[in-house]
Design a protein around this nucleic acid. Structure first.
Length: 269
DNA sequence: CTAGATGTTAAGGT
DNA sequence: CACCTTAACATCTA
């Protein structure tokens, strides 16, 4: 379920179990997440030590000293798992397995293969080429507001658009809108200064809280929409039955009482 | 058996 | 150009 909070947990996992370790071997399983990169491209990493990790939105990078950065994207079902000498993972979900000289290892698994595994020279250059927006947790309020002022469309589509803000996915977008009291189909142009500020603080609060809770939506506070979306299906504040609509091609869940759609602001003519 | 699922991207339409 | 929806990707689960 990898949105920004989960990917941040993977970053910490990789930092804890990979940093400072030297790669003894790197083997590739299913090649689809490599998107055409030949498996031999990873050869130069062998013998190198991991020295840094970075995250931008839903992308994770790990620097192998002098040999560039490994890139991970988790798609819908990507996962990192640790293994030791006699538990090296195999099977069709395996994308890559990194074995360290101390006998430990980390495997990148992705049953659905929507993820990505690659090698880049420079994460910043990759982010620029991709056209990714600022990381949701890095974005300042003035920057956020100026971004919104020149956007149209629905507020849900805006949150999901990785070229505008990187890291928010379908589930956390719903939570952010719930806490900001905004209808997913509200138009960005309808937001006044107060609602814009509320959206910004809700975004930061939700993402930070999710990270504090280990990136696990089941451990979020009971007052959060996500604890109820697939559970009792009722608003934690008023018990109203949550409504589902399709916005930006994704299922959105919201409380019809707390998230009303503001009328478009009158434009000067 | 079918529908739908947390992500990204291409393609076509407004 | 900005935005919308749909479909596709591959697999699992309700």
């Amino acid at each position: 379920m990898p949105e920004l909070p989960e990917v941040e947990m993977y970053r910490r996992f990789l930092a804890k179990h990979g940093l400072g370790r030297r790669l003894e071997s790197l083997s590739i399983g299913d090649r689809r997440p490599l998107r055409g990169t030949p498996a031999s491209a990873f050869r130069p990493l062998v013998g190198r030590r991991f020295v840094a990790t970075r995250r931008h939105g839903k992308y994770l990078f790990a620097e192998a000293s002098g040999a560039g950065w490994l890139l991970f994207h988790f798609g819908m079902t990507g996962d990192l798992q640790r293994f030791d000498e006699d538990s090296e993972p195999r099977g069709s979900a395996l994308v890559a397995s990194l074995k360290f000289t101390d006998g430990n290892g980390i495997a990148f698994l992705d049953p659905r293969k929507f993820g990505r595994f690659g090698l880049v020279d420079d994460p910043d250059a990759f982010v620029r080429r991709r056209g990714l927006g600022a990381d949701a947790l890095d974005l300042s309020r003035p920057r956020f507001e100026s971004l919104l002022r020149r956007r149209r469309g629905t507020v849900k589509a805006l949150l999901l658009n990785q070229r505008v803000i990187a890291g928010v996915g379908n589930l956390y977008a719903d939570e952010i809108l719930f806490q900001a009291g905004l209808h997913p189909q509200a138009s960005v142009a309808s937001l006044d200064a107060r609602r814009m500020a509320g959206l910004f603080t809700a975004m930061k609060r939700v993402l930070r809280t999710a990270i504090d809770r280990g990136g696990d939506t089941r451990r979020l506070p009971r007052s959060y929409l996500l604890r109820h979306r697939d559970d009792d299906g009722r608003c934690p504040r008023c018990r109203a039955v949550l409504t589902k609509v399709r916005v930006a091609g994704r299922t959105s869940s919201y409380c019809p009482r707390h998230q009303r759609k503001p009328r478009n602001r009158p434009t000067l003519s």
